[in-house]
């Protein structure tokens, strides 16, 4: 009888501890899931794969949550887990084609247009830019792609990116510059520069070689 009561009390304490752990994990993780998904999507070019990777990231983070030190950068920690999973995935599927085309996006919303953005021609241009941007991203090496996704699209500081990518800030800076040049070259039909098509002195998009 007494043993049963003690057992119940221990079980209650364990449940309370599990709940606290789960609540703490949710409080820290939930604000980042959208950014994690967007970054995984830009890394892989596949929305569903990105969803799986974010799920795996969160499970991995949850399993290792006790090892996370309070006061350290949680965002960098969880993004580092995600970027490692993305790199593994990209290595495994190196030969698979990049899936960027999204027919739903390109065909646009049906029915009346509630805004200028919903007009099929406007929608198509936006969707076309997004798809081309994703394709251009896929041509960057995973290391450069990660830096571009975090800096240009998520607004991470170089120091935060250096934490995630586990490299010096100077490397982040040079990878980003390289990524920008390549993106400009790939997307020049969307954002032309006055010097497009002309011979350049050095480093201009036309002369950039895909060395990343």
């Amino acid at each position: 009888m007494n043993t049963g009561r003690i057992g119940k009390a221990i079980s209650g304490l364990r449940q309370a501890r599990e709940k606290r752990r789960r609540d703490a994990f949710e409080r820290l993780t939930r604000p980042h899931v959208s950014a994690l998904h967007r970054t995984a999507f830009r890394m892989t070019g596949d929305r569903h794969v990105a969803e799986d990777l974010v799920q795996e990231t969160c499970l991995k983070a949850y399993r290792a949550f006790d090892r996370f030190k309070d006061g350290t950068n949680y965002q960098a920690w969880i993004f580092r887990i995600m970027s490692n999973l993305c790199t593994d995935h990209l290595r495994r599927t190196a030969r698979a084609p990049f899936v960027a085309w999204n027919e739903d996006e390109v065909s646009g919303p049906m029915g009346a247009y509630s805004s200028e953005q919903d007009r099929p021609d406007v929608h198509f241009l936006h969707a076309s830019f997004r798809n081309d941007a994703l394709r251009a991203m896929s041509r960057l090496s995973p290391e450069v792609r990660l830096v571009v996704a975090l800096a240009l699209l998520e607004g991470f500081s170089y120091e935060e990116i250096a934490d995630v990518a586990d490299c010096p800030v100077g490397t982040v800076r040079s990878r980003l510059n390289r990524g920008r040049l390549l993106l400009q070259k790939e997307l020049r039909h969307h954002v032309p520069s006055k010097t497009d098509g002309k011979e350049s002195k050095s480093g201009s998009p036309a002369s950039v070689k895909p060395r990343c």
Partner: peptide, 29 residues
């Protein structure tokens, strides 16, 4: 180059933010 990069920077930031339902994502997680 700077003008073109700035324009690209703005377009990427404005147009490449895909809508995502964070609640649905979180529920699955």
């Amino acid at each position: 180059h700077f003008d073109a990069q700035s324009a690209l920077h703005v377009r990427l930031r404005e147009e490449c933010i895909e809508p995502q339902d964070p609640d649905l994502l979180w529920n699955n997680i």
